[in-house]
Amino acid sequence: MLQNFKLGTKFNLLLVTVFLIGVLISGAALAAILNRNAENQITSKALILIQAMSSVRNYTRTQIYPQLKDRLITEPEFLPQTIQAYSAREVFENLRNNKEYSDFFYKEATLNPTNLRDLADDYEKVIVERFRSDRNLKELTGFRSSPGIDLYYIARPIVIPEQSCLECHSTPEAAPKSLIATYGRNRGFGWQLNEIVGAQIISVPASEVVNASRQSLLLVMAAVGGVFAVTILLINIMLRQAVVKPLNRMARVAHDVSIGNLGSEFQQTSHDEIGVLAAAFNRMKLSLSMAMEMLNKQK
């Protein structure tokens, strides 16, 4: 079948085949690189947010709690503003009003929280237990499935750093009465100093990672496709000028010579392979002309 195609068509088919193979191989490698790059970009943003929430936690522990802890004894209801997890969660919810961070979610997933809002689900419990089993593990990232959505998450352990943190979490008897009145005696107690009790988890829809990677991949592949199209166009122009047209001229001269018109000349306009071929055809035409003259003399 290929024998019936013109030289330019064969050459274009070869170029397209090589291009498609190259795109399949490089596209797969590029997709993996861009996907990893998208993960790194979102992880960097999430790490900044986690650091910010850690600063909020520290500010609440060192500045807010000392100012309000006496009121925990006299107030009939507990003041959640004294709790680090509550402050961080509320600050993050305000941050989510910014469109840039509206798809991010923050949770201090805790195994035994005072507030059930912070209770770790089954998947988050696995994350916390991994931190508890390996004290050297400082960070986890990955993908997880959630009802109706897939999430990409980054997590860091929550450790009880000071004895003051246990004033509300050691035993019900030692806890402020307002805390017991608000949350009861059955949750959030028995914590130990330096114990890992939970994990700070920031998550974002996995589609954010996929879409960012896909957009970059499409942009790069579009650029590659454009370069390839221009390359094929230039190669075709060069092929037509340097190969196809000289060959067509030689074909016409060869046809004229074959029917006895020996006055036609094979034009040698270059010194490349086409020029060498034209010179060879001219020598052959000269030999044919001399042979014809000798044959005519013999007659």
Rank of each mutant, 00 (worst) to 15 (best):
A120R: 05
G184N: 10
I180G: 04
S207M: 07
I73P: 09
L111E: 10
E208W: 13
G8E: 12
Y123H: 02
N115A: 11
I149K: 15
L140R: 04
A212E: 12
L47R: 14
A155E: 03
A120Q: 00
R214C: 04
C165N: 06
S203L: 03
V209S: 01
N296M: 06
E108F: 08
I202N: 02
V18L: 13
T269L: 11
A28W: 15
T17D: 03
D122R: 13
V204G: 00
Q41S: 05
A181L: 00
S178K: 02
P76Q: 13
I154P: 05
A251H: 13
V227N: 04
L295M: 12
Q241H: 15
A120L: 06
K10H: 04
P176T: 00
L119V: 11
S170C: 11
R61E: 14
T182K: 12
N261A: 08
R130H: 13
V23T: 12
Q3A: 15
V126G: 07
P147M: 05
I25K: 10
E173C: 00
D122L: 13
I235Q: 03
S145Y: 02
A291R: 11
N115E: 08
E265M: 08
S289V: 01
T43G: 06
T171N: 08
Y106W: 05
L137A: 04
Q200D: 15
F11T: 03
R156E: 13
S203A: 11
Q215K: 04
S264I: 02
G184S: 08
H169S: 04
T114K: 03
N236L: 07
A251G: 11
V56C: 06
L234S: 07
S178G: 03
K99M: 08
N194H: 15
A46G: 02
N186L: 09
I202K: 00
G275N: 02
G198R: 02
I232P: 00
I127A: 07
R71I: 05
F189N: 10
R135H: 14
Y152F: 15
A175L: 00
G275M: 00
I33V: 10
Q41C: 02
I73A: 15
F78I: 02
A32H: 15
G27S: 10
T231G: 11
G225Y: 11
V220P: 01
M284F: 12
I274N: 05
Q215P: 01
V23A: 13
V220Y: 14
N40L: 09
E195R: 05
H255G: 13
V128N: 07
I33H: 09
L116E: 14
L262G: 09
G190I: 03
S133D: 14
E265A: 00
I149G: 10
G190K: 01
D150H: 03
A28S: 15
R132M: 05
I158D: 09
A174H: 10
L79K: 06
L47H: 13
L234N: 08
V91M: 12
I154A: 10
T110C: 05
F19G: 04
V227K: 06
V128P: 02
R96G: 09
I21S: 15
T182I: 05
Q51K: 13
